[in-house]
Simulated assay, not measured.
Amino acid sequence: MTATRTVVLAGATSDAGLATATALIAAGARVIATGRAADRLTPLRDAGAQTEIADATSFVEMTALAARLGTVDAVIPLVGGWRGGGGLAGQSDEDFDALLPALQAVRATSRAFDAPLRASDAGRFAIVSSTVVTRPLAGGANYAAMKAASEAWTRAVAQGYAKAARDAGAELRAASAVFRAEGALQPDALARAVVALWDRDAAELNDTVIALS
């Protein structure tokens, strides 16, 4: 990746968030890590990230953060979690509601940072999904549905980037992509993939699925 990129990791208080922040900082990026609790942001701050108390699922809070930051080169929403089991009968409303913030974070961050990412010379938006979207199971229907919706939204973001560039008669500079994990998310695999987002130009990267391995 090109050094000095500004990267927002939204909802970054997981192990994957810390691993990704650490890898980006080692590559020379400026990392802004968000979370809802100050104490959970401490490891990220100790790793060298700028930390911001902000709710990644809130369009209002993400818009305020975007206004404060100005130039941004990448946004990666990392709100996640898994609920499942019990077959189709076990797909409770409570589990669905618990999974919903992941989709809400994808929507809020992509909308709030749309203009800054399109203004960057190499803007990147990427989400973490799962191979369950290719073969949904009854016991994970809530989870698969949420991941599929997140992927659909991210593809719409990609189309928006392409259309904006085409309408302006400009080269495509922003790209939206999906990371797909098979099984449990491996933090180091995600970290490597995020750092490599700038290894491909936007036209090649936009609207692609990247397998995490």
Results as ranks from 00 to 15, higher is better:
Asp188Ser: 15
Ala102Asp: 10
Ala108Met: 06
Gly84Gln: 10
Ile53Pro: 00
Leu100His: 10
Ala98Phe: 02
Ile53Trp: 02
Ala168Pro: 03
Thr42Phe: 01
Glu61Arg: 04
Ala105Trp: 07
Asp95Leu: 00
Thr71Glu: 12
Ala56Phe: 08
Val75Asp: 04
Ala37Asp: 11
Phe96Met: 09
Leu65Met: 14
Val60Glu: 15
Thr13Glu: 10
Asp93Val: 15
Ala164Met: 03
Thr131Phe: 06
Pro136Tyr: 14
Asp201Tyr: 02
Gly17His: 04
Pro187Phe: 10
Pro116Leu: 11
Arg40Tyr: 03
Asp73Gln: 11
Trp153Ile: 15
Ala98Lys: 02
Leu88Met: 14
Arg30His: 15
Ala21His: 07
Asp15His: 13
Ser176Cys: 09
Val7Ser: 01
Gly160His: 01
Ala119Tyr: 07
Val133Trp: 02
Leu190His: 02
Arg200His: 08
Thr34Asn: 09
Ser58Leu: 02
Thr71Val: 13
Ala112Gln: 06
Thr134Asn: 14
Thr63Pro: 02
Ala141Tyr: 04
Arg45Thr: 14
Ala165Glu: 02
Ile53Thr: 14
Glu171Val: 13
Pro43Phe: 08
Asp55Gln: 08
Leu88Ile: 15
Ala203Val: 12
Arg45Ile: 07
Val195Glu: 04
Arg30Asp: 12
Leu65Trp: 11
Ala105Lys: 08
Asp199His: 01
Ser129Lys: 09
Ala158Phe: 05
Glu61Asn: 03
Ile32Ala: 03
Thr22Tyr: 12
Arg111Ser: 13
Ser176Glu: 08
Ala164Val: 05
Asp207His: 06
Gly90Pro: 00
Gly86Leu: 05
Thr63Glu: 14
Val133Met: 01
Val195Ala: 04
Gly28Arg: 12
Ala112Pro: 05
Ala64Thr: 06
